[in-house]
Write a protein that binds this DNA or RNA. Structure first.
Lengths: 207, 207
DNA sequence: CAATCAATCTTGACAGTGTCAAAATATCGC
DNA sequence: GCGATATTTTGACACTGTCAAGATTGATTG
């Protein structure tokens, strides 16, 4: 509420909340979720072990906040792609999105793992805020697939919902396969993305 | 080497190796990888904390052994399906395999997560034995996809390798989506599997 | 300005983890 | 039975998340 408060050190540390979020994201990017301990984080930020607990109830809550930012990023990407009045045909736009999505997941692999990993969704408890944002993102995706179906870019005999689920699963599966380094490497990324797009767009085509 | 040794307690404990493997698998099935600690495992088997370390160098090694058994299971499934001289058309066989695979992944969800999760593939170090077996399984999958391509059950303009990778990614993505409880529930499993199969089999069909 | 109150941060503590080193024990080949 | 070897145990260490109690700081009110 106070906007005129002097920046920096308006309290003990300043904006510790943001500082924690930022540093934690860095640490995760460097060495994954496991390399992030609340104690090391506090150390790196320069506060005592338990200081973070006044800004994040849990380690889980902190992780949820980071995951949430990841969802914001992909949501932004999706919206940008959808609203960009590109002269390209919609199929091309879709293809580009797939490539960008996979590239993004690879670029922020650790955060991506966090977004969909068991750390939050199985062990931990997703924050309401995170739940909402992730659901909203899937709705955006669903809505786009619906549009693509209506405009005959995607032709499927199955329901839009199922199609959206399976298509996203394909995308997600590719990302995991890549991120986990199983059966493949990043160099094959482009080709695999193209193959995936072919599979999706030519799904039940009659010509 | 000794086959005639009296069963049970031929040493301190008996066949501790197998006992550990079995109990650990149980514990994982019950509460996931995180609920398995070396100490609790030792407790449950009835030995001291560090006894397991004479049979498994690491917790990592133990986990790899469990994951390996998972790969053995799916490999067995794949071989059975392929060699069963079914009167059904190959497309039907493929569809059945997809359903069974997903069902299996769901039934042994924690073990499945272990097989492909970051616990082993990122944090830990996959055992040579595990590496080999997982690679061999992908080869089997690749070989099947190749066969299906040759017999025109799958029609794709892309390379067999890329097709196999993307198809497996789709399958895997579905399993994760399901296992992690993101965007979907098990009740939608059948339909989603069908949608996925449709997408794969009608990939670039001309009729 | 002084006093109160709440927000923030620190120190101490606890139970839990993986795993190494050294000591104890049991089994087997001779 | 003896010595070697495989197996198990006890003790210890550094690390984790997080709770409770106390100390410090900032904002608020009189």
């Amino acid at each position: 509420m106070k906007q005129t408060a002097p920046l920096q050190h308006n309290y003990h540390h300043g904006d510790l909340y943001q500082s924690l979020l930022l540093t934690a994201t860095e640490m995760i990017a460097e060495g994954g979720t496991e390399s992030l301990s609340m104690r090391k984080l506090a150390d790196r930020v320069g506060v005592s072990r338990t200081a973070p607990y006044h800004h994040f109830k849990d380690k889980n809550t902190l992780l949820c906040a980071i995951a949430e930012q990841g969802f914001e990023r992909v949501e932004t990407l999706l919206q940008e792609v959808r609203t960009s009045a590109s002269p390209e045909p919609l199929a091309t736009t879709f293809t580009q999105y797939v490539h960008t999505y996979i590239a993004l997941a690879y670029q922020h692999r650790e955060q991506y793992d966090l977004m969909f990993g068991r750390e939050i969704w199985r062990n931990g408890t997703p924050t309401n805020s995170l739940l909402e944002r992730s659901r909203q993102h899937f709705k955006s995706w669903l809505s786009w697939i619906e549009q693509l179906c209506q405009q005959n870019v995607i032709q499927t005999g199955d329901s839009v919902l199922r199609t959206a689920q399976v298509y996203w699963a394909t995308l997600h599966g590719l990302c995991r396969l890549l991120n986990d380094g199983i059966y493949t490497e990043q160099s094959q990324l482009e080709e695999m993305a193209n193959t995936a797009v072919n599979m999706m767009l030519k799904h039940q085509t009659t010509a």
